[in-house]
Computed example of a mutant assay.
Amino acid sequence: MGFRTALFNARFWGASFERAVLTVIQALGAQVAVFSATDIEKLGLNGLPWSTITSVSVFAGLSSLLTSLGKAGATKGRGPGLVEQLTQKKAKTVTPSVGVTEPTAGSDGKTVK
């Protein structure tokens, strides 16, 4: 699977968007921590430059998405990153235990174990 196939692969896009959202959250948290450590006493939480923090975080997410798209050809569609591989969850099969019997009713109609 190459670049063109990745464009139409829902699993590839899902993993790419997940990575981009995580990048936005990480960038947002890092900036709030840095600004809070330096200016929180002077400005308070409402005084932080939220427009700057938000725009930098969104740009980081877009950069992550573009990076995933750029790597689509190099990874042959295995995932958005060079070391990742998309996996499908397999259905868990349950096998009955050997020797298990159903409870039976006794002469008084109550279940006997």
Rank of each mutant, 00 (worst) to 15 (best):
T87Q: 14
E102T: 14
F3H: 13
L82E: 04
R11M: 09
V100M: 12
A10G: 10
W50N: 04
L7P: 04
L48M: 10
F59D: 13
E102P: 15
A60G: 11
T87P: 01
S36K: 03
T5W: 05
R78G: 03
T75L: 03
E41H: 11
N9F: 04
S107N: 10
S68Y: 03
Q31C: 04
D39E: 11
A60C: 14
R78N: 08
K42W: 02
G29C: 06
F8N: 12
E102F: 15
G61C: 05
L69V: 13
A91N: 14
S57F: 00
K42T: 13
R4S: 15
T75M: 02
E18H: 09
E41T: 15
K42Y: 05
P80A: 11
W50H: 11
G81K: 08
D39T: 15
V83W: 14
P49M: 05
V83L: 13
I53P: 05
A30C: 04
I53M: 10
K76S: 10
F59T: 12
L86M: 14
T101G: 09
A72N: 00
F17Y: 14
V98N: 08
S107I: 10
T23W: 00
I53N: 08
K42P: 00
T104Q: 11
R11T: 07
Q88K: 13
S16H: 02
E102D: 12
T23G: 00
A10S: 13
L48A: 03
K89I: 09
V98T: 08
T104S: 07
V100D: 12
V83C: 02
S51E: 10
V24M: 09
A33Q: 10
A20E: 02
S57I: 01
E18A: 09
S64W: 02
A74P: 09
S63H: 08
F35I: 05
L66I: 15
L7G: 04
A105G: 03
A91G: 13
S97K: 15
G61A: 07
G44A: 06
L62V: 15
S51C: 03
A105I: 14
A33E: 06
K89R: 11
F3D: 04
K76C: 04
E41C: 08
I25G: 06
S55W: 15
V32P: 00
T38I: 15
E41L: 14
T93F: 07
S64C: 12
K92M: 07
V24D: 00
S36A: 13
